[in-house]
Design a protein around this nucleic acid. Structure first.
Length: 376
RNA sequence: GGGGAGAUUCCAGAGCGGUCAAAUGGGGCAGACUGUAAAUCUGUUGGCGCAGCCUUCGGAGGUUCGAAUCCUCCUCUCCCCA
């Protein structure tokens, strides 16, 4: 995997780059749609490629391991073959489930015992099994197994958790190095910085992660409820330490504004469920602000969905019609909204990239963030 | 023509003397959601000068300290038999 920086902004730490994988290249900064169970909910693969212009999507180790199971994935020839997406895939390690399924799991030094959210059965995830699973899924980018700490999180817990995450990382790297991809293309492993909202822990972690000299580095444990300023502060501190010539991935972020602000801090990759989940809940993101299309005020607004939108749905459908689809519980509602939001997110990072290359990113970002905060 | 059942807050539908501005569901209105246990979840849904008061349970009277709940008449629905 090769990363090259094409252009760096002068008024911020933003950069535009290209990440080369065996499944094609990714132009950064990039937003990666989340496809937890092997599908970006409510969106077809051709829509993802041709309409939203997604370049890489996520899958989830925990979900795919539970269902359909590794035997099926391997028989299919890996996740790319299974779901028909032939561009890069990144899989989350299940580290986030350590956090989000906290009431159905038990942490030990060895790993984590999960209770399946599907049938309650018990499963053990260790750094080694998580590497093996991601080998079988065939992700281009595999994530280290970590603990995503909650917020708030007391210092001692965060410190101890960080120690475990670092130990797990070493085990992930060992297992990764002693195994090979199963499908003939290269896979790579991204380690994850943790440390909650504590500067010293974040710095210690960033230094440890940087020392591993991976193809790319991730920042986890943010956007879990802490104030935005805190998130930016941690991101800034960590970016200063992580190698500049490798892509930086801010996990789970975020709102359109979060993404622009983080690009300015030197982040290259993002993923978040917001554009898809919130789409299914009636929230549309536009360059003019956020719309809750379920609100009564749109009932007889027959203007197109998004005058400035660049997805085909934006001119194809009206606000009143989409609102009706939500009210009538039509599946098409979530499909239209998901497509719109994903296209908007991809448009946002594409446009950010253009401004970085053009050299006027900072000013553009400042104006856009202001517009994005509006509620329509 | 004969017999029976019923009319409750936007809808459906509980309640059958006080703890009822009235269960529950739907609908409406709004909110939340950040490496997806999420097409989910939460709040609210008569009015006001809002720890209280006012107007509501088909209509009009009445019984009672007190009625959506009991009685009388009226109006209107629905079902069964002819």
């Amino acid at each position: 995997m090769k990363f090259s920086i094409q252009s760096s902004d002068t008024n911020s730490k933003a950069r535009a780059g290209v990440l080369q994988t065996d499944h094609g290249q990714i132009e950064t900064p990039i937003f990666m749609p989340v496809g937890t169970a092997g599908a970006v909910k409510a969106v077809h693969i051709p829509e993802l490629t041709k309409d939203t212009h997604a370049q890489i999507i996520l899958g989830n180790t925990y979900h795919l391991y539970l269902r359909p199971g590794l035997d099926i994935i391997e028989k299919a020839g890996g996740l790319h073959k299974f779901n028909g997406w032939d561009k890069p895939i990144l899989t989350d390690s299940g580290g986030y489930q350590v956090y989000s399924l906290s009431n159905t799991r038990k942490l030990t030094k060895e790993g984590v015992v999960f209770q399946s959210h599907i049938d309650g059965s018990r499963h053990t995830f260790t750094p080694e099994t998580v590497m093996d699973i991601q080998r079988t899924i065939g992700a281009d980018i595999m994530m280290a197994f970590d603990e995503c700490t909650p917020y708030p999180c007391d210092y001692d817990y965060a410190k101890n958790s960080l120690k475990i995450t670092h130990q797990w990382l070493d085990r992930c790297i060992n297992r990764f190095d002693e195994t090979q991809g199963k499908y003939g293309y290269q896979q790579t492993l991204f380690p994850i910085v943790q440390g909650s909202v504590y500067k010293d822990l974040r710095m210690e972690s960033a230094e440890y992660i940087a020392s591993k000299n991976a193809d790319g580095n991730a920042i986890g444990g943010l956007s879990v409820g802490e104030p935005h300023e805190m998130m930016y502060e941690m991101t800034d501190i960590v970016c200063a330490i992580l190698p500049a010539d490798k892509p930086r991935y801010l996990m789970g972020v975020g709102t359109p504004s979060n993404i622009l602000e983080s690009i300015a801090l030197g982040i290259d990759m993002f993923d978040c469920v917001m554009p898809t989940r919130n789409a299914r809940h009636g929230i549309l993101y536009t360059d003019q602000g956020t719309i809750n299309i379920k609100n009564g005020k749109w009932k007889d607004d027959f203007s197109v969905l998004d005058e400035n939108g660049t997805s085909f749905v934006d001119k194809q459908y009206t606000k009143a019609y989409l609102r009706h689809l939500f009210a009538a519980n039509e599946m098409l509602a979530g499909m239209i909204a998901s497509l719109h939001n994903l296209r908007f997110y991809l448009w946002l990072v594409e446009t950010a990239r253009q401004h970085i290359i053009a050299g006027d990113f900072y000013a553009w970002k400042q104006g856009m963030v202001k517009q994005l905060s509006q509620r329509l």
